[in-house]
Amino acid sequence: MTAKIFQYRRKILRQLYFENVLSCSDISERIEKSIPLTTRVLNDLISEGAVLETGHAPSKGGRRPLMYSIKPDIIYIVSVAMDQFVSRVAILDMHNRFVTPIVKFELPLANTTDALDQLAERINRLVGESGIDKKNISGVGIGMPGLIDIERDTNYSFFETKQKGVTKYLESIVGMPVFIDNDSSLIALAELRFGAARNKKNAMVINIGWGIGLGLILNAGLFRGNNGFAGEFSHIPLFSNGKICSCGKTGCLETEASLAQIAEKAQAGLNSGKVSMLKSIPENYEQATETIINAAAKGDQFSIELLSESGYSIGRAAAILIHVLNPEVIILSGRGASAGKVWQAPIQQAINEHCIPKLSEKTSIEISTLGHHAELIGAAALVMEHFEKVP
């Protein structure tokens, strides 16, 4: 097999992963190769069992084209989603289905290689327990918080590696290609490829988590900025509250609107005698957030007030971005998206109050359908973005 044919095969598999089903002419157009060449390579993949015929397209008049999809278990991806408190790892197939349970674990995000060693050990253990041969895994995608320079293979906020970059260090232990990106950027990538931003040209994807992250989709592509740091939404200086943020500055959006702040405000409210079905707030932030969101879903007024107050602050910050970027849609994603429509009214209210109406009138607010799995799906998509280049 020539190097070019190998690359064409990879191009076809990559397109089928992202699009689910395509006709031969669709594939030909996307990989920019002739229909005869595309047909030949596609037939080879079908004969090997890598690609499946899925039937004919719905009728639009004329001859209906035959459609194709990628066989889900032909390739696997190890996906890692990290945040400041909880990390998750799982293996996904080509239909983004989890073929292993999602394993949660705490990872100390310190400037040391110890955390990377622990992460690599978790990855190797999961692959070993899965029974999947590493040669059938196209790579490891990792979403992580922090300032990540992909070109320099460096996370400036966490994970110091003295001689190798982050991916090179991990690759030397796990024996598979590794790709990293900021967690909010990967959530936006998931929404762009599989979620609410699909077929949208300009979108803002707000990652509601322990901070308030942002993924920017401009001209139908992920925008990372000059060196990958675009989207530090959490650190818009919106308040004069004197609260120190995790970045070291004061008054950032994160200091009022993050899930961590909601948990702390909930505990303070209960301590001051607020009436609520909440009796206590778990010390674990993840459990605390779930408790508050579940109470809001049951109509608890105090919990709804907490989320609404946070949503209004997020809306104020979003109004600034609408004036600058004029997006088609704002998508609420990440861990906090499970609160659903509770967010929409206060965010819309803030936008109504702080935006020029003509700028915001065609910007909709949508809740992610990918939910808390968005980062894991985005990490898998990151691997497939590079699939043509993986040896």
Rank of each mutant, 00 (worst) to 15 (best):
E160P: 00
S157Q: 06
V89Q: 00
Q118W: 08
V140R: 02
T100W: 00
L109D: 04
F159A: 07
V127I: 15
E129A: 06
Q84Y: 14
K135R: 15
G131F: 03
F105D: 04
E121P: 03
I123Y: 07
L119T: 08
S130G: 09
F105I: 05
H95E: 05
G131V: 07
F105Y: 11
V89G: 01
T112W: 02
L107I: 12
K134R: 11
I148C: 00
Y156V: 00
G143I: 05
T113Y: 02
S87P: 04
N155G: 06
S87A: 15
R122H: 15
Q118I: 11
D114L: 09
S130L: 02
D93W: 10
I91L: 02
M144V: 10
E160C: 02
G131Y: 12
V86E: 12
M144P: 04
R122I: 02
R97V: 07
K104M: 07
F85D: 11
R152W: 00
R97K: 13
I91Y: 04
I132S: 00
F105C: 07
N155V: 10
S138F: 10
S87R: 03
R88T: 09
E121A: 12
V127K: 03
D114R: 13
T100P: 05
I132Q: 06
I137M: 09
F98C: 08
I123A: 01
F159T: 09
D93R: 13
I137V: 12
G143L: 00
I150Q: 10
K135N: 07
L109F: 13
F105P: 01
S157C: 06
S87Q: 11
D117Q: 10
I150P: 03
L109H: 14
